[in-house]
Design a protein around this nucleic acid. Sequence first.
RNA 1: GUGGGCGUGGCCUAAUGGUUAAGGCUCCUGACUGUGACUCAGGCAACUGUGGGUUCAAGUCCCACCGUCCACCCCA
Length: 422
Amino acid sequence: MDKFTRPTGTQDLLPAEQPYWEYVTSSAAATARRFGYERIETPIFEATGLFARGVGGATDIVEKEMYSFRDKGDHALTLRPEFTAGVVRAYIENGLHTLPKPVKLFSLGPIFRYERPQAGRFRQFHQFNAEIFGIQDPLADLETMLLAWDLYAGWDFKGLAFQLNSTGCPVCRPTFSAALRDYYQSHLHEICEDCKRRLETNPLRVLDCKQERCQPVIAGAPQSIAHLCEECSTHFTSLRSYLDALGRPYTINPRLVRGLDYYTKTVFEVWAEGIGAQAAVCGGGRYDGLIELLGGRPTPAVGFAAGLERIILVMKAQGLTPPALPVPPVFIAFSGDAARATAVRLVVDLRAAAIGAQIAMGGSLKAQLRQADKAQARFVFIIGEDELARGEVNFKDMATGTQLTVALGTAAAQVSQALAAC
RNA sequence: GUGGGCGUGGCCUAAUGGUUAAGGCUCCUGACUGUGACUCAGGCAACUGUGGGUUCAAGUCCCACCGUCCACCCCA
């Protein structure tokens, strides 16, 4: 029979990887809570139309990356390719606009995009996502960026580059797009084929073309921040002044444009080195039109997503190790059938006393001790038939190798005392 | 979707076109004590990714497919 293998682009997160995942997810949640964000969990699949409209029909995500299917009821569904559309849908559907503003939400979970896998890219991957609803003030943009900062600072990341830009709003972006298109019309013979295509489909994206020949054209291209309307310009200036006052390092990147249609005003990314070509560990921005677009009342919002796989890649590249996960400190070995029942009783009693304990499930005493060693148990109860006849058990400290004989009835107290001492 | 690298036990690695595909790690058993690590002895485990082709003979050469890794596109 053929062996089953995991689908392309998916991964098995084995026990050896779990310290990273536990660490990253728990600290991200803790940091978000420190900022006053609350967790929201939305379905892993949604109506296909939600993403088609929310993310934008001209995006790569919608054009070629969605895992779409029909269920037995003939509903068109799609595994979420990002968090925001689903969170916005939940915000509208559950009337979260009635909550005191700002509404600050975070999510953590798997995301699906049909792409060719490479370093830092998977078809099923995981994101931490945070959104603030209901605040137009750039203070919300600032809070969003500060959360990203604190996340990475908390993990001791070094050498991250914060990239910032503003791509305007429905008022000023058309002006900028037109200016960009005009400029490119006069350089058509100098640019690559992809850029010619981009000019038609999504003109802003010519700006982050990586082709050598396009670089001089990009360098001379008009910049969005020079074409912002007064409102967008003021917004951007305020955000920058907040950042400057706090002394947060960032780079104004006129070439930073994002692949999703819904962004307005602020866009930002965080880049890491040393994890391959997919260097963006975090991306986000403001999306003031999205809630209304999806059927809610006009609501300003801003948020970002951080890729957990890439975060863990950075940890490994920078030699950062997560704390070890706890293991039961006690192991119970026994010899002989009479001791077996006592061993079972003891392991149950220890757990009832909130002491982590495992019991041997067979093998010679030697094999049991070996198992205790592999399981990194600090203390082992060894129940032998001779001692048991006297109502006693052996209590061994695996770190020192010392062993003493104690009364069976005092076993739990014995462990508590020993654990408190180490 | 496009391009390139790579596919040998669970993992890592070896094998001038020529016996029964070798070794290390892991795992299991045993010896040194009814008692872990260190050491020693032994054991389980691969139709060499799949299917064709060349050849007297293919892990090795050729083709296709699949998988994987990296890069492009794009993004976290």
